[in-house]
Design a protein around this nucleic acid. Structure first.
Lengths: 234, 234
DNA sequence: TTACCAGAAAAAATGCATTATTCTTGACTG
DNA sequence: CAGTCAAGAATAATGCATTTTTTCTGGTAA
């Protein structure tokens, strides 16, 4: 019995795995998530799967349809645009608050987070160890807003980041190399530490804008769109 | 078989009822929510209750503790302050966006929502029919931000409003008469329709600030605090 | 063809019995 | 007297069999 099994409930294990697979594009948009099939695949009871899916539905990571089970959420240009725009808005807000509450500890954590990010980016297998880089990337962005003083805001940002990750991961599957953008993150860090809120917000928005546009362009490509159809259940 | 039963799943019924009871202070902070007891009380299976509680936990309306069941969330001054502050921030943001997207339809809906609110406030049994007033009050505030163009923002605001409602309801239980504040809502509507974003945001924040302060004062009262202890399971 | 319907198959939802874990109690020990 | 521990009770978690609902399929009629 592994370490996680000891304290964790069966439903939570299913939840964790499903969550990971949804975020990494394991399911196609609108694909049906059949309870029995998952229970079978994961070696769990149907109740555990139900509970896991219910939780995920509350987080908007799957869609629930009363009495008709669950499906992977759709992915389309418009949804991506409002998602990305909302993320810019809310995260700017959190950044502003974070900067208003400036502390030494907060600054140091940002510097450290950047250091880790840089390291992960320089590492040999950057392409291979993308999960590692992703973790550091998230940590860095979280460090920027960590001081906003509201766990609500942090939760909202995390949720939006999860949603965005789903899109970004799929785009990475399609065209192999994601932009590293280390220099960009350095600039972002510097402008945040510098303390001018307006400039920092602008930098953050500009940063996310690039991802927004990159995905928008992808949505123009016919071939990419075909990877989003739900025909063949994986 | 009632109307709701036809389309709704057992778990959802339990979810709805639990949600309502949590929002209306039916459970004390930190009170244990025993699965069997609820299943028994509501006439449902334990699995349905588990699912309902799991969903609520994902919305932060109950606390989950792995393998130790669920409890009603705590209520304290600090949590209230960050909640209220976050609500001001996020809802201001949504209002700003909503005003930037101004449309005739949006304006008309606000006027209508205000009309309904006024009616509910003037009605005979204002004290009696508080639920009705609450609904109209929520609708009014939602109408203001409805045009923000992001269902994410609307969801976040709704979630924060739910959380706040829990506090407000308990305060209403303690001191009987809630402030109506119709004039205040009229001013708010006018300044929003007027179109000056900065002034509108300020008005909204000021509006919520009153609730914030009112609850803060309540937290100073010893007698009120005793109503928040979880001793006697209802 | 298209619309409609019944019957069969598939899937979701449910309840209950069972298992596993945590909590409580009280006796025992240092 | 405080701390430890084990046995029993209470509660949470699980799996499975059953029920209910939806979806699919094929046949019939307009």
């Amino acid at each position: 019995m592994s370490d996680t099994d000891r304290k964790t409930t069966r439903a939570t294990q299913v939840y964790d795995r499903l969550r990971r697979e949804i975020l990494t594009g394991h399911f196609r948009p609108l694909e049906k998530l059949r309870i029995d099939a998952i229970a079978d695949e994961y070696g769990a009871g149907n109740n555990a799967v139900r509970e896991a899916l219910s939780r995920l539905a509350a987080e908007r990571l799957v869609d629930r349809q009363e009495r008709r089970g669950f499906t992977a959420p759709a992915m389309d240009l418009e949804a991506w645009q409002t998602l990305a725009r909302t993320r810019s808005l809310v995260e700017s807000l959190a950044l502003r608050e974070s900067m208003l509450n400036r502390t030494d500890d907060w600054e140091e954590r940002i510097v450290l987070a950047y250091h880790h990010l840089a390291k992960a980016g320089r590492a040999e297998g950057f392409q291979q160890d993308l999960p590692k880089w992703n973790v550091e990337h998230r940590n860095f962005h979280r460090a920027l807003i960590a001081n906003c003083g509201s766990h609500w805001l942090l939760d909202f940002c995390a949720q939006l980041t999860d949603q965005a990750q789903r899109y970004i991961y799929v785009s990475n599957l399609y065209r192999v190399s994601p932009r590293d953008g280390l220099a960009e993150h350095r600039e972002l860090m510097e402008v945040v530490l510098d303390g001018e809120i307006a400039r920092a917000e602008a930098a953050l928005v500009a940063h996310y804008e690039k991802t927004l546009v990159a995905l928008e362009e992808l949505f123009q490509i016919e071939e990419f769109l075909t990877t989003l159809v739900a025909d063949a259940p994986s």
